[in-house]
Amino acid sequence: MTTFLLELKERWSRLYDRHEKKILFIFKFAFSLIALFLLTNEIGFLTVLKNPLVIIPSAAVCAFTPGFVTVIVLSVFVFMHLFSVSLQLAMVVMAVMLVMYLLFFRFCPKAIYILLLVIFCFCLRIEYVLPVCLALMLSFNYIFAVDFGIVLFYIFHTIGAYEAVLTRQTSVDKVGVISYLAESILNNRAMIAVLIGFSVTFLLVNIVRRLPISYARAYSIIAGVISQLILLIVMDIWLGAGLHLPAVIAGTIVSTGIAFIFNVMFFGADFTRQEHLQFEDDEYYYYVKAVPKRNVTVSDVKVTHINAKSLKDRGTTEFTPVDWPDDDNADK
């Protein structure tokens, strides 16, 4: 299994090296397209922007341009959808996003992609896969990106749920509805339960994987999975969060599998062949533990088909020997 995964990783690396631009283009297009459709599904108030003839070219623009353009296009879509309902609502949501940028994302711009990924997974209802898998790859500071992603998703989700109320209200009543929406979002027990559960799991996995012990990553996955399950179940019972427990359990089990696959493919260290070394120089004594990486070379198998013409096509049923030049003649 380990060898298969490592060979797969090697093959993908080679494929990516050969077709990097095409793969990136397809990935960015697919991601932008799905993100725009999911966004429209949650807060699709403006009919024009729900049209695939608008969404598909927008996704194409995101595919051809740098990553920050995707963020801008998604923000514009959010603003336009909310503006069609209420200017104040659009301004409030934009203000929340601006505060997130000013306080965190200006220090860590790449974390915006993690925020998008979090919202993406929540919209696809595969959110329980996130904390353990992300914590294995990212550092502590990305916890804020995960938390902001959760908050933004619940903002969009709550606004989408109140669509009927928002579209019916007059402009004066809408002002009161926004207050009511803010109250619903801040007192959303499911959001609080998920925020606490995911944050603690993320921190725990990050702490355990950095411990200077063998198999630290494997222990971190197990610790993360157990803590996620226990915390979410406890939060659900204590807060009455209304989480769908079968989905929590199924998502956590799937995340375990994915996390172990990531661990083997991207962080493969063979602890069975570790060595302990000890040496000194003029200044220090060195106690070193060296753990070799697991590497597998994939053979390049090239099959050459020798197309021999059948003897019938040659017009003879007998083998005709080739006349080789005599050795005497060759010198001449």
Partner: peptide, 22 residues
């Protein structure tokens, strides 16, 4: 500068939350 702007935005958002819109 950026955090002062963010703080002011948070104050305004809090006022919205307390229902002082309108």
């Amino acid at each position: 500068i950026m955090t002062t702007v963010a703080f002011l935005i948070i104050l305004i958002l809090l006022s919205f939350y307390k229902g002082s819109l309108g």
